[in-house]
Design a protein around this nucleic acid. Structure first.
Length: 433
RNA sequence: GUGGGUGUGGCCUAGUUGGCUAAGGCGCCAGAUUGUGGCUCUGGAGAUCGUGGGUUCGAGUCCCAUCAUCCACCCCA
């Protein structure tokens, strides 16, 4: 049997690969206006980075990471041995940890410096069961801003995210933006205890997983889709009622800035992100339908403790990531047509084999002049060559036969108007312009 | 990781209660008088029916396994 792509992975065939490039270019264009510059970090990092950065108790880290080890080390492990901690590698399940690690490692935010505004695009890996809008290898585009803690950073990132969706073609009517604040070290622990206590009171009404969560991370219970749990959690204390003064004013400022920019959002006190590093502002963009249950097309928030967590000096940060595949589904659901990026300025058709060498030279000359140019490579009949030219969407066809060759010309046909004219071989390229 | 559905030429599908050389559409290729496209017509190539076992006189049709896929749970982008 022919070998297939592994479970949960997908080939981006030419049309889609082209669109992915376009998608990234759009992101670079939009984010670039906000001062974001690209960074490329490794796809594999030390497992330790994700454990410390994202949180050992998160699902992403505890059960969804692909671990990478060399064949040699794998053998050691299988034989019951141990390997050095630096040899324990994992495929990145998200982009933030790696970027923050790079920022710390290269001191991209020296004391007193302006914030580092970084963007990335690439593959992430999570060993989940695939379904609609969820793959084991998927593409994300994201940004991270490190070194500034003012709410303007939060607001501009959120605005930028929503502008990107618009620019890439996802209609604003189908997107929803949810915002919340997760508080900080000084107010979240107390709130967490409140929720834990509340859950304990309602223990008999909650599902088993939620009771487990109550111990590890009670806030995750807000994400439970079990109707009974949802009902109970509806009555739970709201984080927004228990923020400390600093967090409250930060959150208020973010909302005011969004209001000022005319960006529609919905406050959702139950919005909790599954990664431990978030503090204060968190947000998530969803599409109303078309993606089934995987309807989040982007999300992020502030992470003021993460840099310290990975061993750097205290550096406030904020970032978001958006899923390429889910955006594609949203675009399809919205009925957006994808223009074929394929273009052909000239197709050189040969009347017979005697002129092929000359045709080859002409094609090359036009390509050197910057035009997309093609010819037949299968000795097809002239008629077939025209069919091919048509299929390629060639705007013009240059017909080269013994007659034309004798005059040092080609017959240049405009495929749309059907007009033909004789053009000297040396002037074809300039004629195309 | 759990549950359910699906798997027929490149793509989409038909295949009756298991029974003769697996059918159609799209696409692809070649023609339709002489050096020319998009429409139409004609012809053609292309499937060991995901893979491996099993039941049976006989399986694309039944059973098991496996791989992949879809949907949901879960989780997240």
């Amino acid at each position: 049997m022919a070998i297939q792509a592994p479970e949960g992975t997908k080939d981006l065939l030419p049309d889609e690969a082209l669109f992915w490039n376009q998608f990234k270019a759009t992101a670079a264009e939009v984010f670039g206006c906000y001062g974001y510059v690209p960074i490329e970090t490794p796809i594999v990092e030390q497992t330790e980075l994700f454990v410390r950065g994202i949180g050992e108790a998160t699902d992403v880290v505890s059960k969804e990471m692909f671990t990478a080890v060399s064949g040699e080390n794998l053998k050691k492990l299988l034989e019951g041995g141990t390997i050095k901690s630096k040899s324990r590698l994992s495929m990145r399940p998200e982009g933030t940890a790696g970027v923050v690690r790079a920022v710390v490692q290269h001191d991209l935010v020296p004391q007193g410096a302006a914030p580092a505004k970084l963007m990335y695009a690439g593959q992430m890996f999570r060993a989940e069961r695939p379904q609609k809008g969820r793959q084991r290898q998927f593409n994300q585009v994201g940004i991270e801003c490190l070194g500034a803690e003012e709410p303007t950073v939060d607001a501009e990132a959120i605005i930028m995210l929503m502008r990107f969706y618009e620019k890439v073609g996802i209609p604003t009517e189908v997107t929803r933006l949810y915002v919340n604040s997760m508080g900080c070290d000084s107010c979240r622990p107390a709130y967490r205890e409140l929720v834990r206590a509340y859950m304990a009171e309602h223990a008999d009404e909650l599902c088993e997983t939620c009771m487990t969560r109550a111990e590890i991370n009670p806030l995750r219970a807000f994400d439970c889709k079990n109707p009974a749990c949802a009902e109970v959690m509806e009555g739970a204390p709201k984080i927004t009622d228990h923020l400390c003064e600093d967090c409250r004013s930060h959150y208020e400022s973010v909302k005011e800035l969004l209001d000022g920019a005319g960006v529609a959002y919905e406050e959702n006190p139950k919005l909790v992100r599954g990664l431990d590093y978030y503090t204060r502002t968190v947000f998530e963009a969803q599409v109303v339908d078309g993606l089934g249950s995987q309807n989040a097309i982007g999300g992020g928030g502030r992470y003021d403790k993460l840099a310290e967590e990975v061993g750097g000096r205290p550096t406030p940060g904020l970032g978001f990531a958006l899923g390429y595949e889910r955006c594609m589904l949203a675009l399809q659901a919205a009925g957006v047509e994808f223009p074929k990026a394929q273009r052909c300025d000239l197709f050189v058709a040969c009347v017979d084999a005697s002129v092929r060498a000359k045709a080859f030279g002409l094609v090359q000359a036009c390509r050197d002049a910057g035009f997309v140019c093609e010819m037949d490579h299968q000795s097809r009949s002239l008629k077939s060559q025209f069919k091919l030219a048509d299929k390629l969407g060639a705007t013009r066809v240059a017909i080269l036969g013994p007659d034309e060759l004798e005059q040092g010309c080609v017959k240049l046909r405009d495929m749309a108007s059907h007009e033909e004219e004789m053009v000297a071989l040396g002037e074809v390229a300039s004629k195309l312009a």
